[in-house]
Lab assay of single mutants.
Amino acid sequence: PAHPYDRLKTTSTDPVSDIDVTRREAYLSSEEFKEKFGMTKEAFYKLPKWKQNKFKMAVQLF
């Protein structure tokens, strides 16, 4: 299930529990994912792991 970005980011005051914290981005809706990352999930997962992590750090999901 998708969760709002505000509850997934590492600085959230009301974090979602029971998620894989190493894959926070996977819980974003497709729309919100595209808004935050500027690309689709499919394109994101084709990137090298280090680049994925760099993007995730930039949007507080790492």
Rank of each mutant, 00 (worst) to 15 (best):
Q60P: 06
L28G: 01
H3L: 13
P48R: 04
K54Q: 14
R24A: 04
P1Q: 14
E31F: 11
Q52N: 00
L28E: 02
M39P: 00
F44S: 00
D20C: 09
S30E: 15
L61Q: 03
D14Q: 03
F44V: 02
D20F: 02
E32R: 08
A43F: 12
R7D: 11
L61A: 08
K49I: 14
T22P: 02
R7Q: 09
K51S: 09
A2T: 15
A43D: 13
K54G: 11
W50V: 11
E35L: 13
P48M: 00
V16N: 08
F55R: 08
T11Q: 07
T10F: 09
S29V: 08
G38E: 12
Q52T: 00
L8I: 07
V21K: 07
K56I: 04
K54R: 13
M39K: 00
K46M: 14
N53A: 10
R7K: 12
D14H: 10
S30M: 14
A58K: 13
D18W: 04
P1W: 12
Y45Q: 04
D14G: 04
P48L: 02
S30H: 13
S30K: 13
A26S: 14
K36R: 12
S30N: 15
F55S: 08
D14E: 06
P15E: 05
S30F: 12
E32Y: 02
K54D: 09
K36H: 13
K54W: 11
P1Y: 13
K54I: 10
A26Y: 13
D6C: 12
L47M: 10
V59S: 06
A58G: 08
S17M: 13
D18K: 05
T40P: 08
M39S: 02
I19L: 05
H3E: 06
P4Y: 08
K9C: 15
P15C: 10
K9D: 13
K51G: 00
Q60K: 09
V21F: 10
K56M: 05
E42D: 14
S29A: 10
D18I: 03
K46F: 10
F33E: 01
E35I: 08
T40S: 11
F44T: 00
E42V: 11
P48Y: 02
V16P: 06
S17W: 13
D6I: 00
A2K: 15
L47S: 02
P4C: 15
Q52V: 01
L28M: 07
V21A: 10
F55N: 02
K49R: 13
A26I: 10
D6Q: 00
K34A: 15
Y5D: 07
Y27F: 03
K34W: 15
R24L: 12
K49H: 14
K54F: 11
S17Y: 13
K46Y: 06
K36I: 15
S29T: 14
R23H: 11
F33S: 00
M39H: 01
M57C: 14
K9I: 12
S29H: 09
D18C: 13
L61Y: 03
A43Q: 14
S12G: 03
M39D: 00
E25M: 05
Q52E: 01
R24H: 08
F37P: 00
E32T: 04
Y45C: 07
E42W: 09
G38D: 07
F44N: 00
S30C: 14
P4G: 08
Y27C: 07
Q52L: 01
L47R: 00
P4L: 03
L47P: 00
F55A: 14
F55V: 07
R23N: 06
K46L: 09
L61I: 05
Q60R: 05
V21W: 08
R7C: 15
H3P: 08
K41C: 05
S17I: 12
V16I: 12
K41P: 07
E25R: 05
L47H: 05
A58Q: 14
S29C: 08
I19Y: 03
